[in-house]
Each structure stands twice: as C-alpha cells, then as structure tokens.
Design a protein around this nucleic acid. Sequence first.
DNA 1: TCCTTATGTAAACACTCGTTTACTTACGTC
DNA 2: GACGTAAGTAAACGAGTGTTTACATAAGGA
Lengths: 186, 186
Amino acid sequence: METTIEAPTRDADRTRAAILHAAQQVFAAKGFAEAGVRDITARAGVNPSLVSRYFGGKLKLFEAALDAALNTRLMTDLPKEQFGKMIVVRFADEDDRVSPLPMMFSAASDREARAVAQRLLRDRVFQPLKNWFGGESADVKAARFMMVSLGFFAYRDQLPLAEFAGRVEPRLRQWLEREFQAIVDD
Amino acid sequence: METTIEAPTRDADRTRAAILHAAQQVFAAKGFAEAGVRDITARAGVNPSLVSRYFGGKLKLFEAALDAALNTRLMTDLPKEQFGKMIVVRFADEDDRVSPLPMMFSAASDREARAVAQRLLRDRVFQPLKNWFGGESADVKAARFMMVSLGFFAYRDQLPLAEFAGRVEPRLRQWLEREFQAIVDD
DNA sequence: TCCTTATGTAAACACTCGTTTACTTACGTC
DNA sequence: GACGTAAGTAAACGAGTGTTTACATAAGGA
C-alpha cells in the first residue's frame, strides 16, 4: 500500500499545478504534437476540459510548461573556469530531459508551437547567454553554444545511432567538455 | 507564357515520380506531421488516394522520399584534406534543405517516422561515415560529425535565434569549418 | 442550514487526417 | 473499332484531435 496524501478533493491551484507538471513530462517525452491533452490530463488525474479552462488551450499550456522549465534551468550560473565540465554534467548526468532544449525539438513539428519555443529560447536562453559571454563575438559564442547543445540533444534523444546510445561515451564526453569550454575561453 | 511540356495524361511512372518529388519538398519544408497527403498530392497535381496506391501509405512515402534524398547526397565523396571547407559549402551554400539531415527533424514528432529516419540515417549516413573515417575512434568521429551537423541544421532551420539567422555568419562558418576538419584530422 | 459559486465531469461538437471504396475514363491490344 | 485493363478521380469512412457545452457537486459564507 502507499501512503495516500489526503489532498483536498477540490483545489484549483493544486489541479492547475498538477496539469502543468504532467504537461512538462509528457511534452518532453512525446513531443508537442504526439502529446495529447487526454494523455496529460489522464496523468494528472483530471478532466481534459480543464486544460482549456485553466490555460486557455493546448498551445498556451505548452508555453507555460516550457516557461516553467526555463525558470528552473539557468545556464549562466556556472563558473566560467569549469563551464565545460559542469554543463556536460548538467546535460548528461542530471535527468535533463525535462529541459528547455529537448522540449524545443518537441515543438519542431507544429508551426505555432515552434514559434513559441523560438521566442522563449531566444529571450530566456540565447540572450542571457550572450550577455553572460560578453565581448564583441558574444553572439557567435551564444550561437556556438546553441549548436553544440542542440546537436547533443538531437543526437542523444532523437536519433540514437551509435552503440553507446543512451549513456555518453567517455571520449565523446571529453570532446563535449572541451567544446563548451572553448566557447568561453575563445 | 511558359512552354508546357505535353506530358502523357496517364503515366504511372511519371505520376509516381511527381508524388515522390513533391513529397521531398513538402516533407522537408513542413515536417512529416504537418505535411499532409493532400498538400503533397495537390503540389503533384494528382489525387490523394494515389499515395496509398503507389506507396502504400504516408509513412512508406516518407521512407521513399528520405531514401531518395540519401541517394543524392553522399558525405564520403569529399577529399579529407578539405573536408571542413567543402562540407560547410555543401551545407550552407547549396540548397540543402531537401537533404537527409533536415528531413530527420521533420520526423521528430512522429514515433514511426522517427524510427524510419533513425534506421536510414544509421545505415546510409552514420555507418558509411564511420567506415570512411576509419581508425579505432571512428565511431566517436562519426558521432561528432552527426552532432555538429544536427546542431547546425537545428539552429539554422528550427530556431533561427541570432541576428544573422538565415545566412551563415562568417565567424560561425570559420568555426564550423575548423570543427569538421578537426574530426578527420584528430 | 441554505444558497451561491467555484470546481470538476461527461458527452458531444467540429474539424482534420490518412485511407478505402465505387466509379469514370483514357490507353493499348486483338 | 470494340473491349479489357490500368490510371485517375470523387466522395465517403473511421479514427483521432482540441475544445465547448450542459450538467453535477463539493466548498464556504450569510
């Protein structure tokens, strides 16, 4: 048996939070298009219609979920001396699948969802990163960071090709560390 | 006025080819999920039902289109001394949007389409590349190539963030060239 | 305690999609 | 030149989607 936390049977805030939490997981796992409103609400244990009532529709829910993920993941809070090592730890070791970057792929198929993801990633990841890098080629550095990061997640999550799919092969990890570190050092 | 080529009004091979050609463009432009059978057949000027008749369904058509794209794009036909420069030319300058790698993203949303893309990219891109690189870390090199390539296309096509979106900024291009060259040199 | 209101549900709606079916028509053959 | 077959079309089908509507009910103040 499990200790059932006696939640209030009716609590709008809690229900809203439950939907948002489920949305983050399901969107990250199945992508925007394949994640159905019924999937999400079933996981949250509520009625599908509440997505429209509390968030104004699936797209707005996606935006809220992506926004929430972005609030819990800052890239610019790492020491520049160990940026490479620590960003790879964050990407590879922590369960970072409910993270802004993988979620971006989740939106790749839908035009509107892609626009939402683009705007959020630009304002909440790319720009802060650019300011944090500083210097005259800050935009190029930020672009390099996005390319390597997106490449990593695309390779790991979207098309696991090699034998070492899933875990990160040691030599690949070493390369990634150097790659990320080079961005801040250049 | 345009010189209208008087095509035979009924020609199965030509119709089949027209559907395949349209499919490559529409899949690459809108992605697997958003590209409707009606979109594709409208562009080819034929009836939607012919997709099922000639290809056995949308998924099979996608596979055929991706396969055709892979046949026209070999990565291993470049001189190793100038691999970096030439692969970037191919990616950035030639219109490479109807190319296997961007099409891979097109499949990201659909489970079955992703499986098809994975298999084809593994057998037709990753493995040949691995053999071409050779040596004991050929698999790591191939993985690095995939990561950088996917990162580039993801950044360029899926989320154009920076001011220089669209064209490739010179310093980014320089970095990409060094990056690709380093893979074969290492 | 009663009544109002917020919360949640069930069901249907409106729409899109890929696919199938029934039918028409042009082409090649005898 | 008639005929049979392959090529193509139009329309409907069935399943799936997000969303809306109508209704039930628990919560909280008068």
